[in-house]
């Protein structure tokens, strides 16, 4: 380890914290509203909207059949998660259960992206905060 290494690590940690702190603040505010205005999840394949679903408390499953492969999404408790996919890397399954506006689930091999949006004017997620 040289001094430059420590400097590099410090800079990276600082950058990560700078990006994370406004998000914590925002999430704290939005989680209270979640129950009166349900969020929606926009599912896009190849950049085009495939389906838009409301994130309800009741369970619903959504199958996505693309020409590259299939994914299975599950909505429950005002959130959404990817439960099954036949892609080779299975990274999309590691995203977990998503409940906040701006959250995304991505399956790169199938070019599938799920973005959570707030109803009405809010939402827009991370790019709104600077």
């Amino acid at each position: 380890m040289k001094r430059g290494d420590l400097l590099l690590i410090t800079v990276i940690v600082a950058a990560a914290l700078l990006l994370m702190v406004p998000r914590w603040v925002q999430n704290g505010q939005s989680s209270e509203k979640n129950h009166n205005n349900p969020l929606t999840a926009v599912i896009k394949v190849d950049g085009e909207v495939y389906k838009t679903v409301t994130l309800t408390k009741e369970e619903q499953t959504i199958e996505i059949n693309t020409k590259r492969g299939d994914n299975l999404l599950k909505v429950h408790d005002y959130g959404i998660e990817m439960v099954d996919a036949d892609c080779p890397d299975q990274i999309c399954l590691t995203f977990g259960f998503k409940t906040n506006p701006g959250d995304t689930i991505v399956c790169l091999p199938h070019r599938v992206i799920v973005e959570i949006k707030g109803t009405g004017g809010e939402g827009g997620g991370t790019d709104a905060v600077i």
Binding site: I9, I12, V13, A15, A16, L17, L19, M20, R23, K44, G47, G102, D103, T104, V106, L108, R111, I113, E115, G125, T126, D127
Partner: peptide, 23 residues
Amino acid sequence: AASIVFSTLNIFYYLPALLISGI
């Protein structure tokens, strides 16, 4: 690359976690 293909910057949401794990 992913944000170009999906034309969204939302993917960079995961950057801070990746930075820490990258260290």
